[in-house]
Design a protein around this nucleic acid. Structure first.
Length: 333
DNA sequence: CATACAACCCGCCAAA
DNA sequence: GTTTTGGCGGGTTGTA
């Protein structure tokens, strides 16, 4: 129960992990309050840092300055909404995200994405997504050069995956079940970096250890993975993935494991079984094939993975199983 | 940690 | 009409 970061908040030793929880609190606060002014003072207060010290620490921990972070998140959410709410004027989206005028929004959008909001809506987004994919494969091959790859993941496994995972290309309905998942409190360990590499698996390993030390999960509670970012919009190095376990509302943050609320809601869920190389493909089919023909539309929440049978990965094959759940809402409205 | 300074960005008006 | 760009003053941010 002793949390060193709580008793010695400004100890400069042991940087990253030490500050992780406080940085995460700020990052989550930003995402939850994009419509409000997010200046240095208020955010420093959230992190319990002095404003001056804070932007230094934030920059060192995340690689971007605070203002850059806030701008990027506003841009990424705006980009998402431009696609998901086609009839909505860009200016309306701008105001929802705290921009005081359409001009500032237009300028900021071009500076960030290298195209206008209108171009983004008319297909420019796919070019951006393509860039992210290129960046991702560049990162993953740079990494697999570093650790001399016990099992190669990305490229040659891809067609392997297509055979194993998808029964039929045009195959009718994947098996999707609608579920209403109740709200709750989650303890989480955050990984920030490219989806699809080894990072998420390593994070799960650390988190599973933490869980067992804290007698979690409690009976009836599953482990949940939350992809906080859309990898087609957010650059790989900034993508967040939270390894989560449901806890009681009284639970407090410990070390680098933080606490967040889960809003709950209605989800379309399908069983996944395969390796990390396959899972992106499964997500694409859920979003790209099932969702459009389902009579539902995606809700503005992150998708989640429910590990109802634990996070055990088969040592031999690298296979694991979980439930992929996409947040949905009715088409009308 | 305070101050100071330069660069950057926001907000406003105008216009394509 | 909406979106985008240009120009410019004043305020904020980033860093020494």
């Amino acid at each position: 129960m002793t949390d060193p970061s709580a008793t010695h908040p400004d100890r400069p030793l042991a940087m990253g992990g030490f500050y992780a929880a406080r940085i995460n609190r700020v990052v989550d606060h930003i995402d939850g309050h994009l419509a409000e002014p997010l200046d240095l003072k208020t955010l420093a207060a959230v992190a319990h840092f002095s404003p001056w010290h804070f932007h230094r620490v934030f920059h060192a921990c995340t690689g971007e300055t605070l203002a850059d972070r806030v701008r990027r998140r506003r841009m990424e959410v705006a980009a998402q909404r431009l696609l998901r709410h086609p009839p909505l004027p860009a200016s309306a989206i701008a105001f929802e995200l705290g921009f005081s005028s359409a001009e500032v929004f237009a300028r900021t959008f071009r500076a960030h994405f290298g195209m206008t909001a209108t171009q983004w809506r008319h297909g420019g987004c796919s070019g951006w997504a393509e860039n992210n994919r290129r960046e991702l494969s560049k990162m993953s091959q740079a990494q697999s050069k570093k650790d001399q790859a016990p099992f190669e993941s990305s490229i040659e496994d891809a067609d392997h995956a297509a055979v194993g995972a998808s029964p039929e290309p045009g195959g009718r309905s994947m098996d999707v079940e609608l579920r209403t998942i109740p709200a709750g409190t989650l303890a989480y360990l955050r990984y920030t970096g490219p989806y699809g590499g080894r990072g998420i698996g390593l994070a799960w390993g650390r988190f599973a250890k933490w869980c067992s030390q804290h007698a979690l999960p409690q009976p009836g509670h599953a482990l949940i993975g939350i992809a906080q970012d859309n990898p087609e919009i957010t650059p790989p190095k900034h993508c967040r993935y939270d390894c989560c376990v449901e806890v009681t509302a009284a639970m407090r943050a410990v070390g680098s494991v933080g606490i967040q609320r889960f809003a709950g809601g209605r989800y379309g869920c399908t069983r996944f079984s395969g390796t990390v190389a396959d899972i992106n493909d499964a997500w694409m089919r859920l979003y790209g094939d099932w969702l459009p023909s389902s009579g539902w539309q995606p809700d503005d929440q992150p998708a989640i993975e429910i590990y109802d049978a634990g996070v055990d990965v088969d040592e031999e094959t690298g296979r694991f199983s979980c439930l992929l759940c996409v947040p949905i809402r009715p088409l009308i409205i």
